[in-house]
Design a protein around this nucleic acid. Structure first.
Lengths: 183, 183
DNA sequence: CGTGCCATGTAAAGCGTTACATGATTCA
DNA sequence: TGAATCATGTAACGCTTTACATGGCACG
């Protein structure tokens, strides 16, 4: 629902960039709270330009395809600020793994344990990436400006989210592994 | 993507029910990991019946509309077990509040603090509901059967999820409130 | 010589939300 | 008398995913 605003926010906080660069930003940092395919990103950037919320400059390249560099306009900034003031409800959740866990008794225990361990590993890796960013970009919290603190808080949400998954996986693995059939 | 399986799982774990009842299950318990509107639920149940994964029985009522009670079939159960064995990737996240936090410096501090406090309250309330279910339905963990433990783990995921939101909101409010402009 | 990166796009199908619709009963 | 509950559905729109498409350059 708020992909346009996610793009505007990135252009504002991290500066102007091309659609291609934006996709990379999503893959790296933004993915901890938003996902988007390249098709969506390119399309939405064009729509934002039609609406006058971003402007673009084409950089002609010889040995590579041309780039369109997008920047947020003052109109886009106004719109974004206005949107920030509207309340937003928590995202609806859709987590396949929870369904699988709920009916885990249908399959052999090692099968579901393998899946839980795989997920544990994925979230450990995601967490490691985010913690590296935390260390490198937000070293001394006290010295951060207000804008940097806001940016830091989004990273903190990602770190908490991944940590929480890691802990749940550990709880689940422990509970399933130690279960005794004799009751 | 996995709404059919979510419905099958509910019919299996919590027993046969009507579309109307299923919507209530979603509102109550399932919502901690899946959301669905009544339109989606009714439609998907009909599709499941066409596929032979559920069967239905119509209960004629006089002073109320008729009910269709759906039950999972053995074919449906087989299909569900097969699906459980396929790996699933973490859900893509889409959280409006994170975008708002990231560009929170665009609006007056009280405005963003109000929104953070509102969210804090929402997650506190969600958490309270889930903890009540935990106490009432899963009192002594050691005595649970394996199937009950699997069911309990999905609830634990919901509890962790809401707790984590509460803690992040507190961290965010603290950080924004105590920030001194003098740097 | 194959794989991956750069850089952008179109088209179709599927999924989800929003709005609209019915109609009796129960409760404040 | 107005609102909420029971019980199910249709229709339109918009968002998201998946598949398909191009074409040169760099690296091993």
């Amino acid at each position: 629902m708020a992909l346009p605003q996610a793009l505007l926010a990135s252009l504002l906080v991290d500066g102007p960039c091309s659609g291609y660069d934006m996709v990379k930003r999503f893959d790296e940092k933004i993915s901890c709270y938003w996902m988007a395919s390249h098709q969506q990103v390119y399309k939405t950037l064009r729509e934002l330009e039609n609406a006058g919320w971003v402007s673009s400059e084409t950089i002609t390249q010889t040995s590579r395809p041309n780039k369109n560099i997008y920047s947020i306009t003052s109109l886009g900034k106004e719109n974004l600020a206005h949107w920030v003031l509207t309340p937003s409800e928590p995202t609806t959740i859709r987590e396949d793994l929870m369904i699988k866990t709920q009916v885990g008794f249908l399959v052999p225990r090692p099968a579901i344990l393998d899946e839980l361990k795989r997920r544990h590993q994925i979230h450990l890796e995601n967490l490691a990436v985010l913690k590296t960013i935390e260390k490198e970009e937000f070293g001394k919290i006290e010295t951060l400006s207000l804008a940097e603190k806001f940016d830091y808080l989004t990273l903190r949400r990602g770190i908490r989210f991944e940590s929480d998954w890691v802990l749940w996986c550990e709880e689940a693995i422990e509970m399933i592994e130690t279960h005794q059939e004799d009751q």
